[in-house]
Design a protein around this nucleic acid. Structure first.
Lengths: 174, 174
DNA sequence: TATTGTTATACTCTATAACTATA
DNA sequence: TATAGTTATAGAGTATAACAATA
């Protein structure tokens, strides 16, 4: 029984105006769809957040390609820059990544001369990650490019709406 | 030259209080990071939207698993239910999918008896997709489960904030 | 015993090129 | 010539299990 409370309206997974017992049009109900209705999906936060994120990431990939940075590379490099000495494990916890998937990424950044690995002061197991001057210089440019691209993609929003949107999104995942 | 306008403050990709010319602490600057600072990433819409989406999708996968539906399966089935006779090409355009990736998905839904393929009324190349009674019944339940799960994940938001968030996200990708 | 970092590997998701049948 | 649907396949992203070194 989908409706425990009959007074509360529920979504129906049926076309507008249709009911569960509605019969098909005579001849087999083969009408063409002119405009696709996505009313229901647009009520889902997961759907809208994903579509918005992918829309921004699409442009991100294009604009950040000259820096050789994809979204995850960018967020890792940025976090290292702003947190010198951060460990892999801390990056995983902060950015919601899995340790095995970070290994190759860190090695790549190191071989490009963007970061350095130094022994951790207290913990012999851990390794502190530090951006090199080259890495820092790259990220100053990359972060500016990212910020600009984001302002373009959110051009329909006022500064106040943009601030509101950021705060509300963080209420979901933080 | 990163700053065309020196009077406009810019993000620096450097730790708080640090400057490009700041020298490392004596001994090699090997201080441990206690709390990771993500201030900059949190100013990016792409980052926040992605993190929020993944947070919701994580629970979505768990709750919708009994229905055998993953996010894309769900959005496809839902769109077919609400738009009887919709074509694959229309689904691709609406949901931002690529045709080759939809083929196996449609075949799977058909072999499960959730949808039927009927000839298109005007276009001999196209195929109209229709949810079977079994598929419709499944989606009534699945959509209710999805809606409930979303309300849980957005529990920190007021109904007004939730509505605002949906509208603002759509301003980005629509 | 628990944790950091690592290796190997499997699985899923996404993207590209090329083909057919019809418009 | 253009479009709908399909096939095959490659690449990227994400996941689990297990191991060595250190706490």
């Amino acid at each position: 029984m989908p409706n425990k409370n009959p007074s509360a309206p529920q979504k129906s997974a049926l076309p507008h105006g249709a009911t569960q017992s509605a019969k098909p049009v005579s001849g087999g109900s083969v009408a063409a769809v002119d405009k696709v209705d996505t009313t229901y999906l647009q009520t889902l936060m997961g759907y809208n957040a994903r579509r918005a994120a992918l829309s921004i990431i699409e442009l991100f990939l294009e604009r950040l390609a000259p820096y050789g940075l994809k979204p995850v590379d960018f967020s890792v490099m940025s976090t290292i820059c702003h947190n010198p000495g951060v460990t892999s494990r801390q990056l995983c916890a902060t950015l919601n990544l899995l340790p095995p998937n970070l290994v190759g990424l860190i090695q790549s950044l190191e071989s490009r001369g963007l970061i350095e690995r130094k022994p951790h002061p207290h913990d012999g197991r851990a390794v502190g990650l530090h951006a090199t001057p080259k890495g820092q210089a790259l990220m100053v440019q990359a972060e500016q490019t990212a910020t600009e691209l984001e302002l373009e993609k959110t051009a329909k929003l006022t500064p106040a709406q943009r601030k509101t949107l950021l705060a509300l999104l963080q209420k979901i995942y933080l």
